[in-house]
Each structure stands twice: as structure tokens, then as C-alpha cells.
């Protein structure tokens, strides 16, 4: 009997320990976010603040320019596959393909364009940020920064945070355009949908654009925060860096999907059937 009770209490305490660990991690993540926002003020907001020369531009290059080819190629293929499948299903079900382009544009502007771009950035940029900060953490460079009077969040996260927001916005817009163009080309070549019919933007409302841009903004903020947080939690040696990198990719992908869900639900709730 006591064996059973021990097992039950053991399970409860294990679950409780996980829950406490989860809550603590969530609080720490929140503190990293608040610290980064405060860091922006410390580094860029105050009069006479000394901005690190070139750090922002360098991060924009790493996050944006170096992801360009990966995003363009991948998202182009996704657009082609999606439109091919959509046209196939539409032609079987209703036989009319005139609405495919119009509906596809609404879908990519308000959702798929920014979300798929951000999912790809989560893997490439998230892993990069976590690996870099994680290896600095395990080789005590982060502690050395603290000894030098530098807040690690200011030096490591603020430039990445700002660069990621700008570049995720830019790449999301580009991703939408590539997806739409690749989709239109596929529809024209495979199903003979007239490009003038496909590229019809009349159904896209400002609210779709605003929702899409809001999502891109939130994704751009979430990816470096989650990845930087994972990097700063790295412990031990190379194994810890590996853990941080994996956690960053999983965590930032999950953050992107969660934000997508929350913002979509919020928009639906606000606008009802008008979305």
C-alpha cells in the first residue's frame, strides 16, 4: 500500500517540479523581453547614449540578407505546391478557378506569408542566435561582459531584436510577393488560369494587410527573444550549446504558431465574419 502512495506522491512531486520549472522559465523569458525593451531605451533612446557602431547593421545583414535566398527559394516552392493543389481540388470540386488567386492572396497576406517566412527564420536565425549566445555563455564571455560593466542583454539581444523586427517585416512582404507570383505562374502554366484573373487584388482590405504586418512584427520580436533566452540558459559545455540551439528552434517555432493562433483568433473576434 505504502508503495502505491509513494508512487502517487512521487508522480505528483515530479509533475509539480516540471510545472514550477515551466513557470520559472516563463517568468525569466518575460524578464528577458522586458530587459530588451529597457535596453533599447538605454542604447538608443537616451540623449548621449553610445550606440555600438555597426552592430545593428551587421545583425540586419546576418538575419536578413543571409536568409534571403533560403526564404525566396523555399517560399516560392511552397506557393507553387499550394496553388497546384488548390487548383486541382477546385477543378475537381467546382470546376471554376477564377476565385483561386483572389482567395489565395487574402490567405497569404493575412496569414501564410508572414507565418511561413517566420517559421523559416525560426530555424535559421533562431539556431544562429542561440548557438552564438550559448557558446559565449559556456565560455564565460557573458560573465566577462558583466565584469566589464556591460549588461549582456544590451550587447547581445538589443541589436538582434531590432534587426529581426525590421528584417522579418521586410522578408514577410517579400515572401508574400514571391508566394503570390510563384502561385500565379503555376496556375497559368499548369491550369491555364489567366494571370489577369489570378492577380486580382480587389478582395484584399487594409485589415488583412494590418493583420499580416502585426503578425510579422510579433514574430520578428519573438524569435530573437526566445532564441536569446535559450542561449543565455545554456550550461556546461558544447552539449549545453546543442541543447540551447534545439530549444531555440523548437521554442521560436512554437512561439510563431502560438502568436499566429492568438492574433488570428483576436482578429476574428474583433471583426467577426468581415475578416
Amino acid at each position: 500500500m505504502s508503495f502505491v502512495i509513494d508512487r502517487i506522491f512521487g508522480t505528483i512531486s515530479a509533475v509539480g517540479a516540471y510545472a514550477i520549472g515551466g513557470v520559472r522559465a516563463a517568468l525569466e523569458l518575460w524578464m528577458v523581453f522586458v530587459g530588451t525593451i529597457a535596453g533599447i531605451w538605454r542604447m538608443y533612446g537616451r540623449r548621449g547614449a553610445r550606440r555600438p557602431a555597426g552592430a545593428l547593421v551587421e545583425q540586419m545583414h546576418i538575419i536578413g540578407n543571409r536568409s534571403l535566398l533560403f526564404i525566396v527559394v523555399t517560399i516560392g516552392f511552397i506557393g507553387m505546391v499550394m496553388i497546384y493543389q488548390a487548383c486541382l481540388q477546385f477543378s475537381r470540386a467546382v470546376g471554376d478557378l477564377s476565385q483561386v488567386g483572389v482567395q489565395f492572396l487574402r490567405l497569404i497576406v493575412s496569414d501564410l506569408g508572414p507565418t511561413l517566412t517566420a517559421m523559416m527564420l525560426s530555424t535559421r536565425v533562431g539556431a544562429g542566435i542561440a548557438a552564438e549566445i550559448g557558446s559565449m555563455k559556456v565560455t564565460e564571455q557573458v560573465d566577462a561582459l558583466r565584469m566589464s560593466g556591460v549588461l549582456p542583454v544590451d550587447y547581445l539581444l538589443v541589436p538582434r531584436f531590432l534587426a529581426s523586427i525590421v528584417m522579418t517585416l521586410g522578408l514577410s512582404i517579400l515572401g508574400c510577393a514571391i508566394m503570390y507570383g510563384a502561385g500565379g505562374l503555376t496556375a497559368w502554366l499548369s491550369f491555364e488560369v489567366n494571370p489577369r484573373v489570378f492577380f486580382d487584388v480587389s478582395m484584399v482590405r487594409p485589415r488583412h494587410l494590418i493583420l499580416g504586418l502585426m503578425k510579422a512584427l510579433a514574430y520578428g520580436a519573438a524569435i530573437p527573444i526566445v532564441s536569446g533566452f535559450c542561449g543565455l540558459r545554456a550550461r556546461g559545455s558544447s552539449e549545453g550549446v546543442g541543447w540551447a540551439t534545439t530549444a531555440a528552434v523548437v521554442g521560436s517555432s512554437f512561439a510563431v504558431i502560438s502568436i499566429d493562433f492568438l492574433l488570428s483568433v483576436g482578429a476574428l473576434w474583433l471583426l467577426g465574419g468581415d475578416l
Binding site: E140, D143, A144, R146, M147, G149
Partner: peptide, 17 residues
């Protein structure tokens, strides 16, 4: 921060940036 102005530390890995 005030303590770290008076106490310096040389780390095991040199930790240069």
C-alpha cells in the same frame, strides 16, 4: 556593479570577445 569596479576577474578561458 560597484563591487565589479573594485574586483577584477581573469577567467579560465581568457574570454576575449
Amino acid at each position: 556593479y560597484a563591487v565589479r569596479r573594485r574586483i577584477g576577474m581573469v577567467f579560465q578561458n581568457a574570454t576575449l570577445f
